[in-house]
Amino acid sequence: MEGLVALTELAAALPTGQLLPVSEEQVGQYLGEDWEFVYRNSDYLLWGTVVTILLTLTSILLGFLAGFPAGAIEAYGSGYSRAFVRKFGVLLRGTPILVIMIFTYFVLPIEIVLDAAQFGLRSIEYVLGPTPFTVPTDVPDAFIAATIALGFRSAAYQSQIFRGALGSIDEGQMEAARSIGMSRLSAIRHVIVPQAMRRSVPGFQNEFTIVLKDTSIAFAIGLGELLKRSHDLFTQQTTAVLEVILFISLIYFVLTFGTNRTLDYVSNRFAIPGESS
């Protein structure tokens, strides 16, 4: 209640029609020295938010690119490929993300990974023609390691989301597609997958939120995301620990709330007609 009163007094003290920008002196006067310290360093924290968002997007994309084929293999693959994908997924899901991230940063040769990615991209361009994608070479190793760790761990979970979605499509859909002359692969591609993708949105929404929050684990390898930068601040001014944590908690809440509302819209927009989202 006292904080609300202080915010009200601060707003009332501003010139009419002007709520921003608020000066550091006004924040310090009404909210205290610690909130003034947070306000003064808000740009530093917001740049950490940018890193968090980028890490989330790259990780979830890598997880999708690896997880969807893995889910399809588990649903329709042969015995050996299915067993390999299943065991690898169990290994990733059963290993703490902190252990995976430390392994990718301190053990995995990042340069070899980048070379492999460049080779893969050149191979795709050789087959399909020029693409707008490039493999950056100036990205910090910590960011790449965190993306690999979060991405493949997410792929292990996304594979189960997509496997379940593929398995939820009635077998009659496949039989109907085959009866009109479609091959098994064409039926999966044009009939089963579009419906499974729609049904997987709620599970994907949950996974997206988990990856967003798990980006904070990158603090362990020194990546300057939101939690790492908040730690940098409250070690400078130890009395502002609570204020910094409250500020970044608000940022995480805004990110997760916005993500959930966006994916709720996507789920409702692309839901299979006649099915409840």
Results as ranks from 00 to 15, higher is better:
Ile169Cys: 01
Ile53Gln: 08
Leu185Ile: 05
Val22Pro: 04
Gly164Ile: 00
Ala155Trp: 05
Ile251Ala: 08
Thr16Asn: 10
Gly224Asn: 12
Val211Gln: 08
Ala176Lys: 04
His190Ile: 07
Gly203Ile: 07
Val139Gln: 14
Gly28Asp: 04
Leu91Thr: 10
Phe247Asn: 01
Asp34Ala: 10
Phe204Ser: 15
Ile221Trp: 09
Gly258Ile: 02
Gly181Met: 03
Thr256Lys: 09
Ile180Val: 08
Asp43Cys: 14
Asp264Glu: 14
Leu250Gly: 14
Thr52Ile: 09
Tyr252Glu: 06
Trp35Arg: 07
Leu10Val: 08
Ile217Asp: 05
Phe247Ser: 04
Ala142Ile: 11
Ala146Ile: 02
Phe219Ala: 06
Leu55Pro: 15
Met1Leu: 13
Gly129Thr: 02
Asp141Trp: 12
Val5Met: 14
Val5Ala: 12
Met1Asn: 08
Thr238Arg: 13
Gln173Ala: 04
Asn41Ile: 05
Phe152Trp: 04
Val244Cys: 08
Leu250Trp: 06
Asp115Leu: 13
Phe152Ala: 01
Glu175Pro: 04
Leu20Gln: 11
Leu10Asp: 06
Gly63His: 01
Met174Phe: 06
Val193Asn: 03
Asp138Gly: 12
Ala145Trp: 03
Asp34Leu: 05
Phe133Asp: 06
Gln195Asp: 04
Glu225Val: 02
Gly151Tyr: 00
Tyr30His: 09
Ser123Asn: 01
Ile169Ala: 00
Thr58Phe: 14
Leu10Gly: 05
Ser123Thr: 12
Glu24Gly: 13
Asp115Lys: 13
Met174Asn: 02
Gly94Met: 05
Glu74Ala: 03
Pro140Lys: 09
Gln18Glu: 15
Ile100Val: 14
Arg40Trp: 06
Ala149Arg: 02
Val107Ala: 10
Leu4Ala: 11
Thr131Ser: 12
Thr259Ser: 14
Gln236Lys: 13
Leu263Phe: 15
